[in-house]
Structures are given as C-alpha cells and as structure tokens.
C-alpha cells in the first residue's frame, strides 16, 4: 500500500504465486475448450487431458461450418438468424427508446413518475417470467400458414418486450450525465424543442446509443429461452439452440471437438466486441443498475 517503498521481493513472489494460481483457474476451461476444438480425430468424447491434441487441426471448425447439428442447417444460416434477431431487436429498441429516454431525463410533466415506475417494474421482471402470455398471444396471430409465434419475427417482438424498457432506462442514465448548458443556451437562442433534440441531444448521444445497442446485442446474441420455446423449423434456429443441441443429453453422437469449435465460434464475436468496448459497457451496466 505504501507508495514510497518498493515491493519487497518475498512479498512480490507470494503475490505472483497467488495470481498465477488464479490465472490457472481462469484459463483452465478456456484452454480445455480450445484444445478440444483442435482435436482432428473426431472421437466422440475426450479420454485424457492434453494441451495440444495429437495432429491438431482446424477440421472440427470446418465440420461445424458445414453442419453443426443433426438438423440440416448450416452454421452460416444459424449465425444469420441470430444476427438478424439480435441486431433487429437492438436497433429497433434503441431507435424507439431514445426520444422516451430524452423526455424522462429532461422534461417534467404530469404522469412522469407513474410511467417511470411502470418501466422499472417491467425491468425488475426477468424476461422468462412473461413467456407464457407472449407465447399464447403471439400464437393466436396466424395468417394462412404463417404463425407469428413460430417465426423469428415473433421471437423478435417478444425480445423487444424486455429490450425496450432496458434501452429506455440505460439511455436515460447516460443522458442524465450530459450537461444541460448547451440545451439551455439553445432554448435562450430560440430553438424549438425539436431543434434542441435533433441538433443538440442526438449528436451528443451517439456514443450512448452505440453502447446501449451493443449491450442489448450481447444479451440477444445468446438468447435461448424464447427461441427454444417458440421456434420449430430448423431453418429458423439460432446459434444458442444449436449449441444446446450439441451439449450433454442432447449431444448424442456429436463429437465434443465439434461442441468445442461451436462454443468458440459462438463466443468469439461477442467477446471481441466486449473487450473492445469494455470500459463503456461496464459503465453502462452500472448505470442501468440504479433501479
């Protein structure tokens, strides 16, 4: 703790030993899954631990790219479905949320407290706890053979139910931190409310919009419960559903090297986004937490 002293060597070594031990525990599952994914033998289950399996290759990745599960659907199709779903939901939620977030952050009007309480109440409820009414109501919307419930659009709508209140609350948290001076100056100069919003607030809110979009995206990328409950056509399946089809009791004859390659291919895109935006995302999570 004392800055004027150098860390004594003995203490340094003890601390390094503790940290190396933690590093080992943190890296163990990651190393395991990486080395499994490099196993070229296609054996159904690993029988021993090895850091680099004999004849390591990217064969498992190639197999997973072609067809991860027993269902006749390619990795690209699954990834497109996940991307369409979470990208669409996040974009729509952020787009619809921004004007509401701005109003809650800046305006005082009758009904404000009541509406904010409504949003917080919804935020408190986990998305899974509204799955029954969403399932049965969306299931009633049928046009010919098309059943809204049994489509990515239906899953998307159900995801918006939770993503939109989150986006409003998160954006409001960010907007609260933007100083009001600029707006006040603009109002004195005779700017209309619309001009204040579009010319001043919106440009300042671009980073907040981006971060909120990515937090919603990270959550949606591995959405499981709704898709698993709603979708029946393998062509609509998402990455999470396929990954679960390759795990444990559902895995059947799927080699674990395929499971490992799939895990890495699902995790890598969001891990990269998360690492790049880490500072903003952690800030955003804590802003969103002030319920």
């Amino acid at each position: 703790m004392n800055s004027s002293q150098k860390l004594p060597l003995r203490k340094q070594l003890v601390l390094q030993a503790i940290l190396l031990f933690i590093t080992f525990i943190v890296l163990f599952p990651i190393m395991w899954i990486v080395s499994l994914s490099l196993d070229p033998r296609g054996i159904s289950r690993p029988t021993e631990l090895n850091l680099i399996p004999p004849g390591a290759s990217l064969q498992a990745y190639k197999d997973v790219m072609a067809q991860p599960t027993a269902n006749p659907v390619s990795f690209a199709q699954l990834a497109l479905n996940s991307l369409f779903l979470t990208g669409g939901v996040s974009l729509f939620s952020v787009g619809v949320a921004i004007t509401a977030a701005y109003t809650f952050s800046r305006k005082k009007f009758p009904g404000r407290k009541f509406l904010m309480l409504g949003i917080i109440t919804v935020l408190m409820l986990p998305a899974i706890a509204t799955i029954a009414p969403l399932f049965v109501t969306l299931n009633q919307i049928r046009i010919g053979d098309f059943n809204l419930r049994n489509s990515l659009w239906g899953v998307g709508l159900a995801m918006v139910a939770a993503a939109l209140p989150f986006a409003i609350w998160n954006l409001k948290g960010y907007l609260d931190t933007i100083p009001k001076d600029l707006e006040e100056a603009a109002i004195i100069d005779g700017a209309s409310p619309n001009q204040v919003f579009f010319r001043i607030i919106l440009p300042l809110a671009v980073p907040a919009l981006a971060v909120t979009f990515f937090i919603a995206f990270l959550g949606g990328w591995t959405e499981f419960a709704l898709s698993w409950q709603f979708l029946t056509d393998p062509q609509d399946f998402t990455l999470s559903m396929a990954l679960w089809n390759m795990t444990g009791q559902y895995a059947g004859s799927v080699p674990w090297s395929h499971f490992a390659a799939m895990s890495i291919m699902v995790a890598l895109p969001v891990a990269v986004i998360y690492l790049a935006l880490q500072k903003y995302i952690v800030g955003g999570l804590t802003i969103g937490s002030v319920k």
Binding site: P29, I33, L218, T222, L243, W244, T247, S263, V270
Partner: peptide, 8 residues
C-alpha cells in the same frame, strides 16, 4: 456468453 460458459 454465460450460455457458452454453462454448457462448457
């Protein structure tokens, strides 16, 4: 993603 962590 916690889904990947849990399955792993």
């Amino acid at each position: 993603p916690s889904l990947v962590i849990a399955t792993t």
